[in-house]
Design a protein around this nucleic acid. Structure first.
Lengths: 109, 109
DNA sequence: TACCTTAGTTACAATATTGTACCTTCTTGC
DNA sequence: GCAAGAAGGTACAATATTGTAACTAAGGTA
């Protein structure tokens, strides 16, 4: 199951490079705690199944906590772990870079 | 062709999240200039075709320069653009995080 | 003349990742 | 009894991403 990595950045990329993982992490960074449905509203284009999958993977990799309340209807809250918070600077930096990239592309038509 | 992004981090992820792009960028960060064949040696598992593709995409996104010398046999050199260098801090941070993640996983067996 | 070299290209195959549509749970409100 | 609500699970379909293997260019070398 465990892969061989030739460079440590591959590990991070493995963990962060799902189609929605970056955005999910950013939102959790800004909101502390979010319920499943709230995340879904923040990412209107993601499907139920895929969102679940991305969250489970982030959980398995130790980036987020999944707190289940035994209620009906169910309530599940997600938040960053301490470990996930170590990525905050990186995520912020990636967002900034993305912002300037968009601006650059818009300038060059 | 241009996609709609709901969050700037998606832009960066789009640009950086190829299977080999992170490692390629890291190596270019440490070596300034590398020929195609040198990169290939640094990433023994990547195929010819995929490496070409990843490099072309990085070039199209403005992260790397592609310098072709009109010789036979051909000589092509790759290097980071100024723009690509803006990602250095991010890449370094991602590598560090990856390193500690590996250590953590090894501890928890 | 046959062969080596580097940085590709091309057609085709195999994987991996996402998405769609519909099913499930159990309790409260009407 | 019947629908609603939140957070999924499942089977199956559609894309997207990588990989394989073989082919090319053009000059130097044996």
């Amino acid at each position: 199951m465990r892969k061989e990595y030739s460079h440590p950045i591959e590990v991070t990329m493995d963990v962060v490079c799902g189609k929605w993982k970056g955005v999910i992490l950013c939102h959790l960074q800004q909101n502390d705690v979010l319920r499943f449905g709230e995340i879904k509203k923040l990412l209107p284009k993601v499907s139920q199944k895929t969102l679940t999958l991305q969250l489970r993977e982030l959980e398995a990799d130790g980036l987020i906590n999944r707190q289940v309340y035994p209620q009906v209807p169910p309530k599940v809250e997600y938040s960053l772990t301490e470990y996930g918070k170590d990525l905050e600077a990186t995520l912020t930096h990636m967002s900034e870079w993305g912002k300037s990239h968009v601006e650059k592309v818009e300038l060059n038509g």
